[in-house]
Design a protein around this nucleic acid. Structure first.
Length: 436
RNA sequence: GUGGCCGUAGCUCAGAUGGUAGAGUCCCGGAUUGUGAUUCCGGUUGUCGCGGGUUCGAGCCCCGUCGGCCACCCCA
């Protein structure tokens, strides 16, 4: 064995023992979103670098130092998407989905950021993004939040709390930003290196500093709430009413500032304390200016993204994750001629019961070994097809789990009844056609 | 990008002060020539992350590097 090739740092395989939980999770999300009328959209994983630079913001950490950017063979600068909103807006504009229309969209898939990996933070990670276009009132903000709250309930997720804030209109936010920069510059002697840096990049972030030396100065800083425009203020108040009416508890965190430039007005985060430093499990907000900024006509919009790895590890910490389903039956083959007879029987049973999970022994092995495989497979029943059974046209059904009846040998015709009864299987499977 | 801890069998881990690698589990076979998870017996599994240095001798000490974890930063 020469030098082992290993996966790229921060990019991990999702193994069979975990994929059951992923599929279950994704199914809950899909059904919840569908119940609110959201439709899936699938975008490419690679986009022109410019798309992200123009939407996320030139001076954000993501664009400055975290993107996987490379040159295509024809010299174009391409980037592995670090988030989904920009691509979703691009796709919507490009395909005319946003032209004077309302759209409720969602997508799922990998995102890429070149950061130092740690728990809950990976270089390839997976998000589910939800975006709503063409609705400017707080009702859609509330819908997005209620949708997530419902999803948490459905997942059995505890341990998350909601924080909301408003950034005001883009104009109000820009004006406030100037105020703030002026204020900080007047207190430059108190600023630490980090803050000096952020003065240029994201001054609002300074408000969130953990440095105790700066606490007093920050307390005295002008507040965003005092610089809100009237309509943003009202928007925010209505959102709070809607959340209260729906019984979704929240706290207002005036220092909650999302890192991406395109946010305005409503921002929110679902946070947990159970995951260490990576406590944000779902976050989003309104981005009324982005569509226009990317070449569409002015379209109000709001959305959020949730991190699948973080949510799954939170669920795991809070009671465990579901596993992939085991086979219903394991078919053992013992003796001359049972190989081909077994294939025939398996296929016939799968025809009869489309939902049946039947694992047939392959690769030989002694009786004992097959018995052990049947047990390890997690199957409820072992079907034994040996020479004696074959000669009589019968099959032995051996229950493998506690609380089941004795084993017995039945004719192959009677087998279907036994399986249907023991496993509660449906015999028909319909293909969804109409709205059913 | 910065700092701290850690890398030994597929997995979980043991290997005082340097003396040429071990357990459990898993897998395979047998005890029980057609009855699993228990028991007993036997067997396979390693460039001790990688590269260099010190030493008669390095899993152990030193340097570098890669990777993991944790925190900072940032974010999902």
């Amino acid at each position: 064995m020469s030098r082992q090739i290993k996966s790229i740092r921060g990019m991990h395989d999702i193994l069979p023992e975990q994929t059951g939980a992923w599929q279950w999770f994704e199914a809950q999300v899909r059904e919840t979103l569908s119940s609110y009328g959201y439709q899936e959209i699938r975008m490419p994983i690679v986009e022109q670098t410019d798309l992200f630079a123009r939407s996320i913001g030139e001076v954000t950490d993501i664009v400055e130092k975290e993107m996987y950017t490379f040159e295509d063979r024809n010299g174009d600068s391409l980037t592995l998407r670090p988030e989904g909103t920009a691509g979703c807006v691009r796709a919507g504009v490009e395909n005319g989905l946003l032209h004077n229309q309302q759209q409720r969209l969602w997508y799922a898939g990998p995102m890429f950021r070149h950061e130092r990996p740690q728990k809950g933070r990976y270089r390839q990670f997976h998000q589910i993004g939800v975006e709503a276009f063409g609705m400017e009132g707080p009702d859609i903000d509330a819908e997005l939040i209620l949708l997530t709250a419902r999803l948490w309930r459905r997942l059995g997720l505890r341990n998350v709390r909601l924080e909301i804030n408003t950034l005001g209109s883009s104009e109000a936010r820009a004006a406030y930003r100037e105020h703030l920069v002026d204020y900080f510059k007047a207190h430059a002697e108190v600023l630490d290196d980090d803050a000096r840096q952020r003065l240029e990049t994201n001054p609002l972030r300074i408000l969130d500093s953990k440095n105790p030396q700066m606490r007093a100065m920050i307390q005295e800083a002008p507040s965003l709430l005092d610089h809100l425009d009237a309509s943003s203020r009202e928007h925010f108040e209505q959102l709070q009413c809607l959340l209260r009416a729906a019984d979704v508890p929240f706290t207002i965190n005036p220092r909650l500032v999302r890192g991406l430039d395109y946010y305005c007005r409503t921002v929110f985060e679902w946070i947990t304390d159970a995951l260490g430093a990576q406590g944000t499990v779902c976050a989003g907000g309104r981005y009324d200016g982005l569509v226009e900024q990317l070449g569409g006509r002015h379209t109000p919009a709001a959305g959020f993204a949730m991190g699948i790895e973080r949510l799954l590890s939170l669920l795991e910490a809070d009671g465990g994750l579901p596993m992939a389903p085991s086979p219903h039956v394991y078919l053992m083959l013992a003796g001359e001629g049972t190989g081909s007879a077994g294939v025939e029987l398996s296929e016939q049973l799968r025809d009869q019961f489309p939902g049946l999970r039947l694992q047939m022994n392959c690769g030989g092995g002694g009786f004992k070994a097959q018995m052990r495989r049947a047990d390890r497979s997690g199957a409820q029943l072992a079907l034994i097809l040996g020479e004696t059974e074959l000669a009589e046209g019968r099959v032995t059904v051996k229950p493998l789990r506690e609380g089941q009846t004795e084993q017995h040998t039945v004719t192959q015709e009677a087998l279907a009844h036994h399986l249907a009864q023991a496993l509660d299987l449906a015999t028909a499977e319909t293909r969804p056609t109409e709205n059913d």
